[in-house]
């Protein structure tokens, strides 16, 4: 184990995979100077500009070329900087990368990782704050990963790079400095296996990305009141761990899904519906109002789902 940040854990994962497999390479804007958040710092020195490749601000061309390169068997890791910017390349991702394997009868595979940092971060306003994971979960052919911890940001990124299908890899910008214990060397987190953050018997809370930490804070407070929370960090939205979620919800009889993204048509709706179809558990969702993220702190804070709101919802589900 080594103590490192969420950011450094992903950097270590990429470096290890690039050492292991010469076909792994990365491309994006400003990677040569370490990436806009420092996620690539030092990598160009080790791997050279051919493998840590700078690109102009041309998201569609970058992603399209990466799909082609992936079809030829190389393994591009594409940096989009903000999930908001990646929308310039949504055709290449949704119409091309996601469908190539199916359309060509399995002859072509697209081993591509698209890194799309998400989330609210330091008053970044409406075009730099979005959490768009549900968009991609809706698209057949795409894997969607949303790591919440440094260890998972290493283990999931390594799995993503080794995956033969396109992975939309959504790190939360606010988590970059988060520190935690990270296994050294070969640490792979499989897709579709959730993480039980804490065990409890009264309310199941399902979350992912930064919101997991908010839910953990709420669960701590609820524990003091005698309410046991079974907190599940989904880790990947597609595939998602139905087994763990359904087992837990059936046992506690109460499911609360909580995410930072807009609640309307969010991925929480899918989980809530699935649980309602398969168990008799009472289901609730918590997410942002259907409004853009505002700049001024009072307006920005108004879309946050805080620990108090999570705890209050859990209490009301308990009839308290």
């Amino acid at each position: 184990m080594a103590r490192m940040t969420y950011l450094a854990a992903a950097r270590a994962a990429l470096a290890e995979e690039m050492r292991r497999d010469p076909l792994v390479w990365a491309v994006g804007e400003d990677l040569g100077r370490g990436g806009v958040f420092g996620q690539y710092a030092g990598l160009v020195e080790e791997f050279g500009p051919e493998r840590i490749s700078d690109a102009p601000i041309s998201e569609a061309a970058i992603l399209g070329a990466s799909v082609g390169a992936a079809l030829m068997g190389t393994r591009p890791v594409v940096e989009m900087r903000f999930s908001d910017f990646a929308l310039c390349a949504v055709d290449e991702l949704v119409n091309q990368a996601a469908k190539a394997r199916f359309m060509f009868g399995g002859q072509g595979r697209v081993p591509l990782v698209v890194r799309e940092p998400i989330g609210m971060w330091r008053s970044s306003a409406a075009q730099h704050s979005q959490s768009l994971e549900a968009w991609y979960a809706h698209i057949p052919g795409l894997v969607v990963a949303c790591p919440a911890t440094p260890a998972d940001n290493k283990g999931l990124l390594k799995s993503a790079i080794r995956c033969d299908d396109p992975v939309v890899y959504m790190e939360h910008k606010n988590l970059w400095p988060l520190e935690g214990e990270v296994p050294e060397g070969e640490h792979l987190v499989p897709f579709g296996v959730a993480r039980r953050v804490r065990a409890g018997g009264d309310v199941t809370i399902v979350s992912w990305s930064q919101q997991v930490h908010v839910c953990a804070e709420a669960a701590e407070a609820l524990a003091g009141e005698g309410i046991g929370v079974d907190l599940i960090d989904l880790r990947t939205l597609w595939p998602w761990d139905r087994v763990m979620v359904l087992e837990s919800a059936a046992r506690t009889g109460r499911l609360l899904v909580c995410h930072e993204a807009v609640a309307v048509a969010g991925f929480g709706a899918e989980i809530a519906a699935t649980v309602a179809e398969h168990t008799s558990a009472k289901v609730r969702r918590l997410g942002a109002p259907r409004a853009p993220v505002g700049y001024a702190p009072p307006v920005e804070d108004a879309v946050r789902v805080g620990a108090a709101a999570v705890a209050a919802t859990a209490r009301s589900m308990m009839g308290r």
């Binding site: 601000i57 908001d84 910017f85 306003a125 409406a126 075009q127 505002g294 700049y295 009072p298 307006v299």
Partner: peptide
């Protein structure tokens, strides 16, 4: 206060923003 540095408009002055996507 909803837009910040990158997102301002003035219909009166015919200034149409203020856009954050390159």
């Amino acid at each position: 206060g909803k837009g910040g540095s990158m997102h301002m408009f003035s219909k009166e002055r015919n200034f149409f923003g203020g856009h954050g996507i390159v």
